[in-house]
Design a protein around this nucleic acid. Structure first.
Lengths: 105, 105
DNA sequence: GAAGGATATGTCAGAATTGACATGGCGTCA
DNA sequence: TGACGCCATGTCAATTCTGACATATCCTTC
């Protein structure tokens, strides 16, 4: 199973329980994917909490609706850098970002 | 002042106090750089705590000594993804990474 | 069930990141 | 002084990421 497929699957429906349950993710790979999912989920939460559309968020960040959708889906083409920059750009603090990453879902 | 120069300066000697003191970093840019510096510093700490050389760490991570040096220097060519993967690869937990990011230096 | 707004997915050219190599600097030891 | 180990910096080809566009899928509301 290639890396793309793994991230795709993980991003798709494996937020219940540990990602990498019967996927062949090493523990570090699983931790990485989970960390990314946590940020993606939080991004969506911040957006909906403020009643924004993906297009509005995209405008704020100087990006596009499709990329915001991919961010929220933790798509394989989205980096942690992008997610962190997006959260900071929407007003989240460094501490807030850290807590999202640290907290076990 | 361009982005590269800013990160370079910040990475060089501005860990005392807030980066972006008299640099023209916006608050989000400053938060991003500080976050990156925190991870870089922690990487160096983990390495020295274990008594490893940069070359040894590089071997463990499947990278090179020069890239590890750049990671620890929070070089502009280093992504947060790379820093996070490095820390996880050296045995740090997701929570540990989150705490490093969250803690106000 | 057509229309419209919102979100999802595929693709791609341009930009950014990465491992590797070369080389330079620094401290230590003989 | 020279040799050696460790860290820093510059460069670059290959890979990966990103914004943008096109298009598809969902929901509501009428």
């Amino acid at each position: 199973m290639d890396k793309t497929k793994k991230e795709r699957l993980a991003a798709a429906g494996w937020r219940a329980g540990d990602a990498g349950e019967f996927l062949d993710l090493s523990t570090e790979e699983a931790a990485f994917v989970e960390l990314k999912l946590a940020l993606a989920d939080y991004l969506r939460e911040v957006r909906s909490r403020n009643g924004w559309t993906q297009a509005q968020v995209a405008r704020r960040l100087g990006s596009s609706q499709s990329r915001v959708a991919k961010m929220e889906a933790a798509d394989a083409s989205v980096s942690i850098d992008l997610l962190v920059k997006a959260l900071l750009g929407l007003g989240a603090s460094r501490t807030e970002v850290g807590n999202v990453i640290a907290k076990p879902a």
